[in-house]
Write a protein that binds this DNA or RNA. Structure first.
Lengths: 338, 338
DNA sequence: GTGAAAGCGCTAACAC
DNA sequence: GTGTTAGCGCTTTCAC
């Protein structure tokens, strides 16, 4: 095994250089009151000169206060997490907190349910003293530090930030229905994802609420990709009785809808109204004629982080569960059916 | 200060539950050879039952081996880092490594030069045993673990992944010049950023190499945003002698170019050839008629991580510096000047 | 105001 | 094979 040859500096090196004891240096590091200003200055200066930094590991172990926020994600690269990071980064900017995004490459540990639990306990009570968990299942999680769940499947004891998937979908449908549309196609998201299910539920609920029939042929099994959106739209447009409007479960599929409609010679929004659910207000923004429901995922990250910081400061939350609203963004209004 | 009341499990709890010593549990945890299979099984079972996880902090402190890759970024939310994460995530997926992205909210520590150094020493030699540093200045950095720099300003002793900003820009210019263009506008990126400077340098170098004059009026001070790209293009198009082609330093400005050209009634690529430098192959992709040079930032992340893992495994690198090539993606070929 | 000493949870000699 | 023991770098009583 590697030997003690950690050539990095320790508190001991600083102490020796200052000719004071280790505890004095520690006091300075932690801004304790009872250090003579003379000693204080000297230690500070030496620390700066040597470029010493206390070891995160050692500090974490000894004291509960690390000022580190841990963020647990399954996949560092998925669009949802990425979008979330924007908001999280914004939220800690200028604060005294540090951020640690933790993500494991071990699929074995990750694939089986319970990875959250495993990784959580690695951060929580260790180097982080507040945790943001991005996972559908917060069920059997236990934490000793404050924890905020981001868009959990079902919210339980933990404070959480929820997205308004169903509500947003209903808003879309009410808008389209108010324009007179009766046959509205739906392109679902990736099967099994809560977001997709909830959006589809909103689609169905809105139809039923309006007393409109739910035609299974109008519901296409998408997967959040542009290509599938394209194919699904082709299916819809070649129906004997095609829809007058299409609601796509995300921005990418919405682009696919437009691709297919254009190729088939349909005019948007003249012949077909298109609305997309948009998590990352970007891709869809560049398409003219597309109405979207924006669910600002980055704002979810921002809000979640704000909540967590509050908890870490010992304050209590006004609302333990915060639902981030969606916004219907009408660029060119959709076609009106007389 | 908070007391010892860490109600989280320790190795001691496991040992007691198994009625073995702490070291035996440690041996099991670290897959050491000399444990009877009987004991091994029992300990494993108890660990699973209790849901015990070793403390990252304690493990890091005692052994140098943590299997944790640290990634140092200034801003968790900026597009470059985000794009990088995609590649990094992909690279560790399925490996035995864990990832920790570290980012500080303390602007004081961040703003002044030397933040890298400070944060580096926090990770390196502490919880991470390999570090990826995303920063322009790797100058006075020292590390005791393997370190790979991502797109550093100037590369020095550390292995690094470099982007081919200048080379990509030259490729664009050679392409446009080969089509017969003589007056090519350039919309620069955010002032002060290396990426922008390098791209502009490529623009100038290519012109000089081709024996073409460098007209300052054709170089517009952009800032990587669509809006500024729009205004810069208006400036270019209203020139007494407007360019026949425009090269935008990134995808967003390229979109701005198209916006402005369309508004002014110019046809693309009929009246004006447009090429954009693209870091995040997404926004520009949705625009028809736009040719881009793709610099896959996510691939830089992937490559950097691969290099780092190799180093962490004690292997040596074939090439200490890897320049990730750009690719000219011609969607509809640009206008040809007779 | 400052130092000595006892651990935090864990690993790695070293004994048996 | 397994237990005992000495720390890793730090914080925190408790003396002085």
């Amino acid at each position: 095994m590697m030997k003690r040859t950690k050539n990095s500096l320790t508190i001991r090196d600083v102490a020796e250089a200052c000719e004071v004891s280790i505890s004095t240096v520690s006091r300075v590091l932690n801004e304790k009151a009872d250090v003579s200003s003379e000693t204080y200055e000297k230690v500070r200066r030496v620390i700066a000169e040597m470029g010493y930094t206390s070891s995160l590991a050692a500090t974490s172990m000894r004291s509960r206060r690390t000022n580190v926020i841990g963020v647990l994600v399954v996949d560092l690269g998925d669009p949802f997490s990425l979008e979330l990071f924007k908001g999280i980064g914004k939220a800690i900017y200028g604060t005294e907190y540090d951020l640690i995004v933790y993500c494991s490459g071990r699929i074995a540990a990750t694939a089986q349910s319970g990875w959250e639990r495993w990784h959580l306990s690695r951060l929580d009570g260790s180097i982080a003293d507040g945790v943001l968990v991005v996972t559908p299942t917060t069920e059997d999680l236990t934490a000793i530090s404050p924890l905020v769940a981001v868009d959990p499947h079902e919210h339980n004891i933990f404070p959480a930030v929820l997205s308004a998937n169903r509500e947003g979908a209903i808003a879309v449908m009410e808008y389209l229905i108010s324009l007179g549309h009766r046959r509205i196609g739906f392109i679902a998201g990736r099967q099994g994802l809560v977001s997709s299910n909830r959006r589809q539920q909103g689609y169905i609920d809105a139809l039923e609420q309006a007393g409109l029939p739910v035609d299974p042929a109008l519901i296409q099994p998408g997967d959040y990709t542009r290509e599938t959106g394209f194919r699904c739209t082709q299916n819809l447009l070649t129906l004997p009785d095609p829809p007058t409007a299409i609601f796509a479960a995300n921005d990418q599929s919405a682009l696919g809808v437009i691709d297919a409609a254009c190729e088939a010679g349909w005019h948007i929004p003249g012949d077909l109204s298109v609305v997309g659910f948009d998590n990352t207000p970007q891709a869809a923004r560049s398409m003219p004629g597309l109405t979207t429901v924006d669910q600002s995922v980055s704002e979810m990250g921002y809000i979640a982080t704000t909540m967590l910081i509050k908890l870490m400061q010992g304050k209590s939350l006004d609302e333990p569960v915060c639902k981030v609203p969606t916004q219907l963004v009408i660029r060119d209004s959709c076609q009106c059916i007389a």
